[in-house]
Amino acid sequence: MHGTPHIVSDVMTHTVAAIGSGATFKEIVRLMQDWKVSALPAIEGEGRVIGVVSEADLLPKEEFRDSDPDRYTQLRRLSDLSKAGAVTAKELMTSPALTVHPDTTLAQAARTMARAKVKRLPVVDAVGLLEGVVSRADLLKVFLRADEEIAEEVRREIVSYLFPPPNSNVRTEVRDGVVRLVGRVRDTSLVPVAARLVRAVEGVVDVEFDLTRHGNPTDAPAGVTENEPRGTASP
């Protein structure tokens, strides 16, 4: 019933900078500056991704440049101290690289980034060859969808199934990504279901309801819990 979700290949950057394992520290810094990126995939052979070098991997060299860390710091930050003395991508990179495939959904990619606390992910094919990079900014592109495009998908994929006429008469309004369903429905118990489905539509910021129930006016309104949609579903 639901529309096909956007996937990484819809938003990723195809032309990307990459480094070999032998790239020097200064070459890496210069490439990051030139491409205005915070991380670079490290590749070998025909383009197989073997690791990633990020700004976080480079910073220890500056942090420990003029310091003599005590024993506790040495034990606690052994990896950072090792990178402070590194001079090539092979010594600096995080390996194996955390990657995604082109057919990964944007929601899955966002969860991967959030859990790993990274800003960019290399996109690789089935054998690990680099195809592009997807960033946090790329994942937010779905929120640029036109309001009318979102409204049409909600009408077609959700409202027409859950609240079909003539038993229901629901109008779909969208403004700045906020969806509002207004009208009369036969079964307000479906409102929480509609809320979950509407929120799953890409580009939706929030959903609100102003729905009343057809039929017996003495029927109790559908329950809308604290975590369910804002708005009213009155008898």
Score class of each variant (00 low, 15 high):
Pro60Ala: 08
Pro122Gln: 01
Glu91Val: 11
Phe209Lys: 02
Asp10Ile: 08
Pro5His: 00
Ser38Asn: 12
Asp138Phe: 07
Asn216Gly: 01
Glu46Pro: 03
Val159Trp: 03
Ser168Thr: 12
Ile28Lys: 04
Ile150Asp: 08
Arg180Ser: 13
Pro60Arg: 04
Ala97Ser: 05
Asn216Asp: 15
Asp103Ala: 12
Asp70Trp: 05
Arg155Trp: 13
Gly47Asp: 02
Leu75Val: 09
Pro164Glu: 14
Asn167Val: 14
Asp206Asn: 06
Thr218Trp: 06
His214Gln: 04
Thr218Ile: 08
Glu173Gln: 14
Leu58Ala: 11
Leu181Cys: 01
Ala23Thr: 09
Pro165Gln: 09
Ser21Leu: 10
Ser21Thr: 15
Thr13Ser: 14
Asn169Val: 07
Asp57Thr: 06
Ala110Met: 12
Glu44Arg: 12
Val178Asp: 03
Leu144Gly: 05
Ser79Asn: 07
Arg71Thr: 08
Leu75Arg: 10
Arg213Glu: 13
Asp103Ile: 01
Asp34Gly: 02
Pro221Ile: 00
Leu78Ser: 15
Ala89Thr: 03
Ile50Val: 15
Val170Asn: 01
Lys36Leu: 04
Glu55Val: 06
Glu44Phe: 02
Val201Ala: 07
Val193Ser: 05
Arg145Phe: 06
Thr225Arg: 14
Pro217Arg: 14
Ser189Glu: 14
Asp66Glu: 12
Asp176Thr: 13
Leu31Lys: 09
Thr112Gln: 07
Trp35Ala: 14
Ser9Thr: 10
Arg111Tyr: 13
Pro5Asp: 12
Met1Tyr: 11
Val185Asp: 06
Arg48His: 15
Leu98Ile: 14
Ser135Phe: 03
Asp10Met: 06
Gly203Phe: 10
Leu121Phe: 01
Ala222Phe: 05
Thr88Asp: 09
Thr112Tyr: 06
Thr4Ile: 08
Pro41Leu: 09
Gly22Thr: 15
Leu75Trp: 12
Leu81Tyr: 06
Gly85His: 03
Arg111Asp: 15
Phe163Asp: 03
Asp68Lys: 05
Asp66Thr: 08
Leu129Thr: 06
Arg175Met: 02
Pro221Glu: 01
Met113Gly: 05
Tyr72Trp: 14
Pro192Leu: 07
Leu197Met: 09
Val37Pro: 00
